[in-house]
């Protein structure tokens, strides 16, 4: 299932968007499901207007498009919420207590299966198997799988979904701790009190990519990959890291074992070396504490 943007409503539907999607699929007949999938990814559901445009442009009868759109469970003709919850009611999950979990979900959200909460936050769907029967009851929220879910865990899961699963639980996880980092050349601290990421001062460096140069702020928490940057760096491109104080390029003594880009070296306050991969999207890093 593609990401659910859920931000656009029926009035926003631009026939240009749909035509753009249609242009990509010129193959005979077979492209219909792919077209519907892309429209669903764009809007979170299949608006009536989009089906009419598809029928118009592909020359297939509207009734055929409609029958395909209603046949598959992954397509929805009704707008869906920001967070999509799939609760498994397959045989294995069922005997392990999935009905109670679904009841609790329905109760807490105040909706029936297949419905969306009035605030457009959650959509609850039941499915018949997710292929993880040994881990049942399984609940999937926004593509994150939760196994052996109990009734008591539902409120916590919903809360987590509201806040987003991308954020880490700082403080609870012992693998996460803050680091103070210094420039290996001028030994200035790179931690920046004026800009917090994850509730801690961020690590500020200067990056240059092509002709662009700007700041990049990394989370100082070891184990967190959150960051902010002045300009967008495209995924997989390699950037150079410079010290914002002395302007010297951070030295690189080794290449990333994952993607072969140069590893950037910084000093850890109190002794030690931190190396991070300079490729955007690569999460490889080495921490040597003395």
């Amino acid at each position: 299932m593609a990401a659910n943007t859920g931000t656009q409503s029926a009035e926003d539907i631009d026939s240009k968007d749909i035509l753009r999607i249609l242009e990509k699929h010129t193959e005979d007949r077979g492209g219909l499901i792919a077209i519907l999938e892309e429209i669903q990814a764009e809007y979170g559901y299949l608006p009536e207007k989009s089906l009419r445009i598809i029928s118009d442009k592909t020359g297939r009868p509207l009734v055929d498009v409609y029958s395909i759109a209603t046949f598959y469970r992954s397509f929805s003709l009704k707008p869906r919420g920001k967070h999509l919850i799939y609760a498994c009611l397959g045989t294995a999950c069922h005997v392990r207590g999935a009905p109670r979990v679904v009841e609790e979900l329905k109760h807490q959200l105040g909706i029936e299966a297949g419905e969306t909460t009035p605030d457009k936050e959650f959509t609850l769907e039941t499915v018949n198997c997710l292929g993880a029967c040994a881990l049942g009851p399984v609940v999937v929220i926004d593509g994150h799988y939760f196994s052996k879910v109990r009734k008591s865990r539902i409120s916590q899961l919903l809360e987590q979904a509201r806040n987003g699963f991308g954020t880490l639980e700082i403080g609870k996880d012992k693998r996460i701790f803050p680091l103070n980092v210094n420039c290996p050349h001028c030994n200035h601290s790179l931690n920046d009190d004026t800009y917090d990421i994850d509730g801690h001062p961020s690590i500020r460096v200067t990056i240059s990519s092509g002709r662009k140069q700007g700041w990049l702020r990394l989370s100082c928490l070891y184990g967190s990959y959150n960051f902010a940057s002045e300009f967008d760096v495209s995924i997989d491109s390699v950037v150079s890291f410079l010290c914002p104080h002395c302007g010297v390029l951070f030295p690189s003594t080794s290449d990333c074992s994952v993607c072969a880009a140069p590893m950037v070296r910084m000093l850890v306050d109190g002794g030690g070396i931190l190396q991070i991969c300079s490729r955007r999207g690569c999460k490889n890093h080495i921490l040597d504490l003395v």
Binding site: P61, L62, V63, D64, Y66, S67, T70, F71
Partner: peptide, 19 residues
């Protein structure tokens, strides 16, 4: 004509016009 067709599936399968 192609005005009516099958919609849905399983026990929700029905015949009718789109929408």
């Amino acid at each position: 004509g192609k005005a009516i067709g099958f919609r849905g599936r399983g026990e929700n399968r029905s015949i009718g016009t789109p929408f």
